[in-house]
């Protein structure tokens, strides 16, 4: 279905529901959805106004939902790892499979065990990428980023930044140790602690997205552990020497998902927005959004990306990359708390 047909049919559906005039949905999103180039085409075609509220950290989103009145929010974009948590809390509505392009998604990122429950679909992966190694190729030989072994020597003391999110970096440490990120237990944490401490001892900074980008772009550091295409994609046109790679022992796959909130007052319009975001055109825009780039979950988005955009996203290498990465660790509550305590310990080291 082309975007035009999709949007026209959506608009007709909304009109037939008698709710076209001044229809508004409220979406709790990550910053990549705030790009007008992504939202404006949907609003223009459907007449549905999208109010966006950006957040960072699932805890913050859950707090906002808790403090809002039922029905205040219609759409939720959330870290793929946290979908089971919000489904379990009854926050998401089941989505009709026949209105979702599930067959067009990269099969490796459908993540059915996280996005479905008892056969019902509650969220769909919309974007993905890798938490791996970003580096300055003018200063770091390719051989040095083939493994963490070389980076965790004193040659790289003060030249490393660590992305400030415990799950992917613990995942990278686990992959480096040859562990399965999906089977981690508390018994694995001492070995992971050693790797994290070795990283921290050589780190100039532990920063969130903008801080890590700034550190790499200004030459403050030469490597960002936990970086990836999402970190260097927007920098690459200006500084082509900033790039990323997946080390030999692998890295981790990040994903974000979109769903409709269970108590949405505008479920049809919210679903239309989800359909748009998952459409090839919406996916191409989301992949190259101004906040950060990432791979679109829908393979057909490639039809709407320029060759240059595909080159930066490394479109043609995705099958290879997907075969070499593991999923984010998916800890239970006790292990999650232990991991966060370990992260705090590492930060304060």
């Amino acid at each position: 279905m082309t975007l035009r047909r999709l949007l026209v049919s959506t608009a007709l559906a909304v009109l037939s529901a008698g709710a076209a005039a001044a229809q508004t949905i409220n979406a709790l999103v990550w910053c990549d959805h705030a790009d007008p180039a992504l939202i404006a085409p949907f609003e223009e075609a459907t007449g549905i106004r999208v109010n966006l509220r950006e957040y960072e950290g699932t805890g913050a989103a859950l707090a906002m939902l808790e403090q809002s009145r039922p029905g205040d929010w219609d759409v939720l974009v959330i870290d793929g790892i946290d979908v089971p948590r919000v489904v379990e809390a009854g926050l998401l509505a089941p989505l009709p499979a026949d209105r979702l392009p599930l067959g067009d998604l990269f099969p490796q990122v459908v993540l059915e065990d996280r996005t479905t429950r008892d056969g019902a679909i509650y969220a769909v992966t919309e974007k993905f990428g890798y938490n791996t190694l970003s580096y300055n190729s003018a200063r770091v030989p390719e051989a040095d980023v083939a493994s963490l072994d070389r980076l965790l020597t004193d040659d790289y003391a003060g030249r490393i930044a660590i992305y400030d999110y415990y799950l992917p970096v613990i995942g990278i440490a686990a992959a480096h140790l040859g562990l399965d990120t999906q089977s981690l237990t508390e018994a694995d944490l001492p070995a992971i602690r050693e790797v994290l401490f070795a990283m921290k001892d050589r780190a100039a900074t532990v920063g969130e997205v903008v801080a890590s980008q700034t550190a790499l772009a200004t030459g403050e550091v030469d490597v960002v552990i936990g970086g990836g295409e999402w970190l260097t994609g927007v920098l690459e046109p200006e500084q082509p020497e900033l790039t990323w790679t997946i080390p030999d022992r692998g890295a981790v796959l990040w994903s974000q998902a979109i769903g409709v909130l269970a108590d949405s007052r505008e479920p049809e319009a919210a679903l239309a927005f989800v359909e748009y975001i998952l459409s090839p055109e919406g996916q191409a825009r989301l992949a190259t959004s101004s906040c950060y780039w990432g791979m679109p979950a829908n393979r057909r988005a490639g039809e709407h990306l320029t060759e240059e955009q595909k080159r930066i996203l490394r479109w043609d290498s995705q099958e290879d990359y997907l075969s070499r990465v593991q999923l984010y660790p998916a800890p239970d509550e006790a292990l999650d708390a232990a991991m966060q305590d370990l992260w705090l310990e590492m930060l304060q080291r």
């Binding site: 805890g59 913050a60 400030d164 100039a204 532990v206 920063g207 801080a211 999650d336 966060q340 930060l347």
Partner: peptide
């Protein structure tokens, strides 16, 4: 948070860590 590079955490940063993901 911006200038310290998270090499050591001050108390407000630890408070934010409790809220950001753990929602504690």
């Amino acid at each position: 948070q911006i200038l310290g590079g998270n090499r050591e955490l001050a108390l407000p940063q630890v408070i934010m860590l409790q809220l950001g993901r753990r929602a504690d």
